[in-house]
Write a protein that binds this DNA or RNA. Structure first.
Lengths: 202, 202
DNA sequence: CGCTAATCTAGAACAAGTTTCAGACATGTC
DNA sequence: GACATGTCTGAAACTTGTTCTAGATTAGCG
């Protein structure tokens, strides 16, 4: 409805300190609940409770449960991105660097599978109303992959490859989270799709 | 939660004629509602109403909304599969045949984007409780792609490629449905991932 | 300080998925 | 045909996401 506590393009309305703290408490409570119980355990009333905030306030900060979880994903990726910039993958081959990067991300998510479940389900369930936020996540992922490839100004063809890699990563994550694909298969899928990287353009 | 009206592995309990008819009415009603309004327009009370069936009965046939929509997807893929067997893609190159096949599937879904939205959202939102059904859909998709590739006994490597193709297809579909990717981009993604097909194994 | 607008709280209310239950109906068996 | 069993109906109840409202608090400003 009215203002939103997050990301319109012109750098959000600037929260006061208490508001910033509230936002963090909410995100933390959400992560906590997601950590045990996954997507369905993140119940808005409980989040509000755990964050010491009224339900209406929670909805002012995050207009839906999906928004909340997507924001969580955004945070996680942010962390991952800076961590990766600190210690970038070492391999010579761009494809190997990307595969290593993705598997690192994957292992990070593995540490808290239920949280991962909640975030990923939210991401793929998000409808048009959440597009800007989902897009932000997508751009972050793209940035991470491009970093790993060592590209500053990718061509159209390279961007298509990156998109396919992201598609694969997302979808493989989902099938793993719902128990339909093993970790070994995920690794294999990632290695497979990464072969596209050093392929000549058609 | 006693019996279920669908798919234990040993070929479901055999429905009577009236039951088969009910099942079809339910699926039809679901498709109808999804056709306008997408995922959220498929309201269980309305489905039951439109199918001329009590709510409890609906839940006996499909234990959740997601089950219902996944079953719909399964039906659609069934149709597509037989249609494709009748008129298989013509190209010489396996990669082109797969790309053509997927774009045909894509166009079929395009005809009813809201129905597609409902089915795909259900697929990716499905949790472990729906795994068998989602798996059935996955196997169908695999069969379709393998058919297009002209493979009877794929190697491990080829199966990995097929999985990556499916990942890409699913995820590209989602991004298109939520308006974050254009049709041209989807086509490009599909063409890109299909290049994996005639790549030598590493 | 005192005013005003925005924000926050508590709690009720609403919507849609899901569960439950009592009674009616159908099916198959003797 | 009558019984036993399983299925279907209609309606209420329960759960959880979301919205709304009235009153308290807070923040910014003169």
């Amino acid at each position: 409805m009215g203002e939103m506590a997050a990301e319109p393009r012109p750098t959000a309305p600037a929260l006061t300190e208490r508001q910033e703290a509230r936002r963090r408490r909410i995100l933390h409570a959400g992560a906590q609940l997601a950590g045990r119980g996954g997507f369905e355990a993140v119940q808005m009333r409980e989040v509000a409770d755990a964050a010491g905030v009224a339900l209406g306030t929670l909805y002012r900060y995050f207009p839906s449960k999906v928004h909340l979880l997507v924001a969580l994903m955004q945070e996680q990726l942010q962390h991952l991105h800076t961590a990766l910039r600190r210690r970038p993958p070492a391999a010579d081959d761009p494809a190997q660097r990307v595969a290593e990067t993705l598997m690192r991300a994957f292992r990070a998510l593995q540490r808290d599978p239920l949280l991962a479940d909640a975030m990923v389900r939210a991401l793929t369930f998000a409808d048009r109303g959440v597009s800007p936020e989902v897009d932000a996540v997508s751009r972050l992922t793209t940035a991470i992959v491009l970093d790993a490839m060592g590209l500053e100004e990718p061509t159209q063809g390279q961007l298509a490859v990156v998109r396919v890699i992201e598609h694969t990563w997302h979808s493989a994550l989902i099938t793993w989270l719902s128990g339909r694909e093993s970790i070994a298969q995920v690794r294999r899928d990632i290695d497979t799709v990464c072969r596209l990287i050093d392929l000549p353009e058609p």
